[in-house]
Write a protein that binds this DNA or RNA. Structure first.
Length: 215
DNA sequence: ACCCAGGGTCATA
DNA sequence: TATGACCATGGG
């Protein structure tokens, strides 16, 4: 299967184009987890505003978030959209996090067990769980998002309607199981997607991987 | 005015 | 199991 060769070549190309990204854009592992939930189907710029609000009100801890009223929490995260839904999700997550004993206890779990537990939390689906596993717990899990799916479809590696696990298995099978590599690759895919050709600029001149452009 | 953004859950057939 | 509705702000 030379799928692996293509996947590796794309990584090298993206790295040449954009350089190292040092992700996730957050100051602490806890902030990574909150951001992962807030960014569900939402532009990151809006998530940043919500996180700033949480910081300003000193609510960026598991205890504070779980103790806040849903209405107060919703008000602060408003810029991130879906604020009522996400307020509940943040609280479900923080209650679970505290119940499990926080990082000190969760770090002891195997990656498989931790993933299973994360997925059991209301509001945490596969991508959010994998964001958290990779960027907050530093586990070798490849994050699949809409950009990754489009990219693979564009490269004719997939049709596009495959399920999440199929794509994750595909990417993980093509690469060395290294946290740093998975971290960088997913970040590069997102950065490339953000820098993609716009409607106002149908041809991306600087893009040496034109076939990867999404528009 | 329209489209989409670093998804997930729930109801229906 | 497989679609569809729903959640909602903000920038292009």
């Amino acid at each position: 299967m030379h799928t692996a060769k293509i996947v590796k070549a794309v990584y090298q190309q993206l790295l040449n184009m954009y350089g190292h990204q040092h992700w996730w854009p957050a100051q602490t592992a806890f902030e990574v987890m909150i951001g992962a939930i807030l960014t569900q189907n939402t532009a990151w710029i809006n998530v940043e505003k919500a996180i700033v609000n949480l910081k300003q009100h000193k609510l960026l801890t598991a205890k504070k978030i779980s103790q806040a009223t849903p209405a107060d929490l919703a008000e602060l995260i408003k810029p991130a959209g879906y604020f009522n839904v996400k307020a509940k999700r943040l609280q479900s997550y923080c209650e679970w996090f505290l119940r499990q004993g926080g990082f000190s206890q969760l770090n002891k779990l195997s990656t498989e067990k931790l993933r299973e537990d994360l997925l059991s939390v209301h509001g945490v689906g596969p991508e959010t769980a994998d964001d958290i596993l990779l960027y907050a717990f530093h586990r070798p899990i490849f994050v699949i998002d809409a950009y990754t799916r489009r990219l693979l479809a564009r490269l004719k590696i997939i049709k596009g309607d495959e399920d999440y696990e199929t794509l994750r298995t595909l990417m993980e099978a093509a690469l060395k199981q290294e946290v740093a590599l998975f971290n960088e690759y997913h970040a590069l895919i997102v950065v490339h997607a953000k820098a993609r050709c716009r409607k106002t600029k149908p041809v991306c001149e600087s893009c040496t991987l034109r076939k990867l452009c999404h528009f």
